[in-house]
């Protein structure tokens, strides 16, 4: 979530609540001969408020399960998640009397710290990475469609190469996909998304051997590589120089396909970073709630 002017109210509330908490904590410590304690009434109050803040922040996960329910726009829940999550930090620290305590509470504090830091890290990423992705990946696609798009690019590249150099037997996967496309076209001839494909050339010119070689050696492996592999797109400038002039538009398209594949890889990496922190933040938040519940039960019981 991008922090902007819309957050001013939340920011002011969090600052005021933190200051109020700090002042009352100072007064409470000054009035307590044995120092702050989570078991005292003021300590318990901090604990209850901190837990409430954590719970409200954590409700975002539930809100995302009922997307169509009219219980407030999701952005408001996200704002609440961010700011109440932050407010929980001083409240819990005041509840703990700025100490770690025993094994359970130390574990709780460690989890709380990791959850908070990972959340802040994610928030920081969200300020910059969407913009970077927008700038660096103009040909962005849906992440869920990425494999499909990569396959499509490989098929498009094969179609181009075959239209210049004839059938390439090694590209069996691409040929199978083209055949499947044709079969689908037969069943739904009115489908506007169907693409008219160029047939393979039957009598390729001698330069076709070079194209076929570059395709099998560089272009095809590049297009079919693991999406997370960092590799530069193949350089086909030599091919362009040596190929007949009329091939130029198709070779340009081939280069554009490689570039699109490159952009998809960049998108994949940025997407992984943008969402990777959630793999820490979400499960540890769940663990935090479980341990916090255990802590509450134990504290109330004993």
């Amino acid at each position: 979530m991008r922090l902007n002017r819309d957050h001013r109210g939340w920011l002011a509330f969090t600052i005021v609540a933190t200051i109020a908490g700090a002042v009352s904590y100072r007064l409470y410590v000054a009035a307590s001969p044995y120092g702050a304690s989570g078991g005292s009434w003021p300590g318990l109050a901090y604990g209850v408020l901190g837990t409430l803040a954590m719970l409200l922040a954590g409700l975002l996960a539930g809100r995302k399960k009922v997307r169509t329910w009219r219980i407030g726009p999701a952005r408001v829940w996200m704002q609440m998640h961010v700011w109440l999550g932050l407010l929980a930090v001083p409240l819990i620290l005041f509840h703990a009397g700025l100490r770690l305590g025993g094994a359970l509470t130390t574990t709780l504090m460690a989890l709380f710290a990791v959850v908070t830091v990972s959340g802040l890290f994610g928030l920081a990423l969200q300020q910059y990475l969407p913009g970077i992705m927008t700038e660096r990946v103009p040909l962005e696609t849906l992440v869920g469609q990425m494999d499909h798009v990569r396959e499509g690019l490989a098929t498009d590249a094969y179609e181009l190469v075959a239209s210049l150099a004839g059938v390439v037997p090694e590209a069996a996967e691409e040929q199978a996909r083209l055949a499947a496309e044709q079969a689908a076209l037969q069943t739904r001839p009115g489908n506007w998304k169907a693409v008219a494909r160029k047939p393979p050339v039957t009598d390729p010119v001698p330069e076709a051997a070079l194209l076929r070689d570059v395709y099998l050696r560089e272009i095809r492996p590049y297009l079919l590589r693991d999406a997370r592999t960092r590799t530069n797109p193949p350089d086909i400038r030599t091919l362009v120089v040596r190929a007949p002039g009329e091939w130029a538009p198709k070779l340009e398209r081939l280069a554009a396909i490689c570039e699109e594949s490159h952009q998809l890889a960049v998108q994949r990496r940025l997407h992984d970073v943008l969402h990777g922190w959630l793999f820490v933040h979400a499960p540890l938040s769940f663990a935090l709630f479980v341990l916090a519940a255990f802590h509450i039960v134990m504290a109330l019981k004993y």
Binding site: M1, K64, R67, T68, P130, M133, V143, G144, H271, H275
Partner: peptide, 25 residues
């Protein structure tokens, strides 16, 4: 796009509201 984290909550919400099939891409 400078705010969107590509979480696809919008698409899922659309699908939730329309019989499991999103009405936009």
């Amino acid at each position: 796009l400078e705010r969107c984290t590509r979480c696809d909550e919008c698409v899922r919400a659309c699908a939730d509201a329309h019989d499991g099939v999103a009405r936009f891409t």
